[in-house]
């Protein structure tokens, strides 16, 4: 097939716009989509040109048939996000709140109430949150690391930061038990808010009710896809994975 991209800046521009929209996707997904869409557009142009349409008109027709690049990119990104919603977000939030933040938040007043440990306390809070944020960013490529970090530091750090601020005020600093109680209550509020946000996302994705069966149903298929995509699947391996 003729390489039309060199001679058609409109196609180039269209794919560049699309590329920006799907930039948060994992590189392999993004590159595959770009190649696939380019091939499709080129095929339309080639077919139209064969029928006698002038090349410039053929390109215009192809782009019209494809629709707005931003809308298409946004839809592709949303489709990718939907794949992540019921699995990674759920796992990440549960892990985040129940395994990491609660102990950190509960431990914070003890650590920082001793003045010589204050620096270590702050380092601990920021360090653990940064690691969890990085982990979330990896698990959540479609959101982008910046979004995850903003979320992490703006929302999840609110409670420990408030505790630190409270401890800086002499009356609270002297009564760390009061601070402990406040932090515990705020932690619960934090968890409740996060779970509400999680439920909202799940309901918006239309998967809240069907989540457990949906996930169970997808497990063998995902395994099958994974093996097929890597191109090293034997029939036996696939069968075993599907059975699992």
């Amino acid at each position: 097939m003729q390489n039309l991209l060199e001679t058609t800046p409109e196609l180039d521009s269209y794919l560049a716009t699309l590329g920006k929209e799907i930039a948060p996707l994992p590189p392999e997904e993004r590159d595959a989509a770009q190649v696939e869409l380019r091939q499709h557009l080129e095929a339309i142009v080639a077919a139209e040109t064969e029928l006698g349409t002038p090349p410039a008109q053929a390109v215009e027709n192809a782009l019209t048939q494809f629709g707005d690049a931003r809308t298409l990119g946004k839809t592709m990104r949303q489709t990718w996000n939907e794949r992540l919603v019921p699995t990674d977000l759920h796992v990440a939030l549960v892990r985040l709140h129940f395994l990491t933040l609660i102990p950190v938040q509960l431990a914070a007043p003890f650590v920082v109430s001793s003045s010589q440990n204050a620096v270590w306390g702050v380092a601990l809070l920021f360090g653990i949150n940064a690691v969890v944020g990085w982990n979330l960013g990896k698990r959540f490529p479609a959101l982008g690391s910046t979004t995850v970090l903003v979320y992490q530091f703006a929302f999840l750090l609110a409670v420990p930061v408030m505790a630190l601020l409270l401890l800086a005020v002499p009356p609270f600093g002297k009564h760390w038990g009061v601070v402990f109680g406040l932090v515990a209550m705020l932690s619960l509020a934090n968890i409740f808010a996060a779970l509400c946000a999680h439920c909202a996302v799940m309901i918006r994705a239309g998967r809240f009710v069907t989540y457990p069966t949906h996930e169970l149903r997808l497990l063998p298929r995902r395994a099958h896809l994974m093996v097929t995509r890597r191109g090293d699947a034997s029939a036996e391996v696939t069968r075993q994975l599907l059975r699992w």
């Binding site: 869409l37 048939q65 629709g67 298409l72 592709m76 489709t79 939907e82 997808l218 298929r221 995902r222």
Partner: peptide, 18 residues
């Protein structure tokens, strides 16, 4: 006559659902 761009999100979704 489909909006041909719309094919790809649909294909991704079908693929994600197995």
């Amino acid at each position: 006559r489909l909006n041909e761009g719309a094919l790809y999100p649909a294909l991704r979704s079908l693929e994600q659902n197995g």
